[in-house]
Design a protein around this nucleic acid. Structure first.
Lengths: 199, 199
DNA sequence: TACTTTTGCTGACAGTGTTAGTTTTTTATC
DNA sequence: GATAAAAAACTAACACTGTCAGCAAAAGTA
């Protein structure tokens, strides 16, 4: 009965090929150039085959969005683990966040809907929780280690995330002065935030 | 020879109607629902007429983007003028920035390409300079009034703008806890920023 | 081999931005 | 007022898009 297993394998193989070829199109021509027909052409199947694996084009975008959040969470986690003190951890996290956006701009764009029509419901993608939780715990730990342990961690986590995203987004849409200037801006903002956080 | 003047007037009238009807479509159905054919239908002309007034759909989007930056600049200017001390001015500016995004979310979306395919070249829209200049002078004045007059104004202005945009963008794409929570986050971040700015 | 199920393809629908070519309307001249 | 010239607007198409119903082909089962 290994026959249905082979079918299963082939099915997932096609699914993987769809994602792989889609990604190549996105990297080469950008998100707006990604179309179902182009995907079908690349995987050498007809268009309805794509719909056997993904309910809609939005579902494909969502898959990449999830993948992006997953990778981001991992990179933030290793960055956090690389440091001992909570304030150094926050610095490492912000650096990793920035690096992720620089190295995977296409991913970042769908994740945050920067200039491309995003799949709605970005919010309830479960992979986002990983990132959210990580930031929250990092902030909470930093607060505990600071001189003012009764600040609102939820509020501070939101602020932190907003600062990070704000700088990345502004850099992506205006992109002047190269990433050098933006990187210095990020460091400045994060330093100020941490200082205020720890009192 | 008032005949060509009347023509001119009629021409600009049609142009204004295009923008007006387009805006109504956007408000009612969102940016992704705005199409040339729908505009043509609304203004009761055929599609090529739209192209007599706007080179492309992107040009229409750009017009709204410019309008948005123009209004934002005005609102920030009056907010700034409402306060005397530089730190209060920064507070007023951030509040006005927030208010603009809340009251004109559709405008904000094209201006910063949040989830909609933006006209590229967002950066060299001249109206942006108004906003940019205003923020820079406000920051510079605050720096002069502070205890540390040799901090990098350009850097701080970028940070300030990024914080503002970051909070607005995060609120728009995730939109949890209502604007109440986000507003508190903004106040917190801005307070921290101003404190660090003035030393 | 005959039947059934799965799989994939063709072709269509309704929509998009954009433009070439043609018709209608308006203007100026006689 | 009729007529030729210029301006304006329209029709129809091209090349796309996401999506899906209906049909042909291949694969599995008996």
């Amino acid at each position: 009965m290994g026959i249905s297993e082979r079918k299963q394998r082939q099915l997932e193989e096609v699914r993987a090929t769809i994602l792989k070829q889609s990604w190549q199109i996105v990297e080469e021509e950008g998100w707006e150039a990604l179309s179902i027909r182009k995907i079908a052409d690349a995987i050498e199947y007809s268009t309805p085959v794509v719909y056997k694996h993904f309910e809609s084009k939005d579902a494909i975008l969502e898959a990449f969005s999830r993948e992006g959040y997953d990778r981001l969470a991992n990179q933030l986690a290793t960055a956090k683990a690389s440091q001992a003190s909570p304030d150094k951890q926050l610095e490492a996290i912000s650096a990793a966040y920035w690096r992720f956006a620089q190295e995977h701009p296409k991913h970042y764009q769908i994740m945050y809907g920067l200039g491309i029509p995003t799949c709605q419901m970005v919010r309830d993608i479960p992979e986002i929780r990983q990132v959210s939780d990580l930031l929250h715990t990092a902030i909470d730990e930093a607060i505990k280690s600071g001189k003012n342990p009764d600040v609102d961690g939820h509020l501070k986590a939101k602020t932190f995330w907003s600062i990070l995203h704000g700088l990345v987004a502004m850099t992506m849409i205006s992109a002047p002065g190269g990433p050098e200037m933006a990187r210095r801006t990020l460091d400045d903002a994060v330093q100020g935030f941490i200082k205020a956080l720890l009192n």
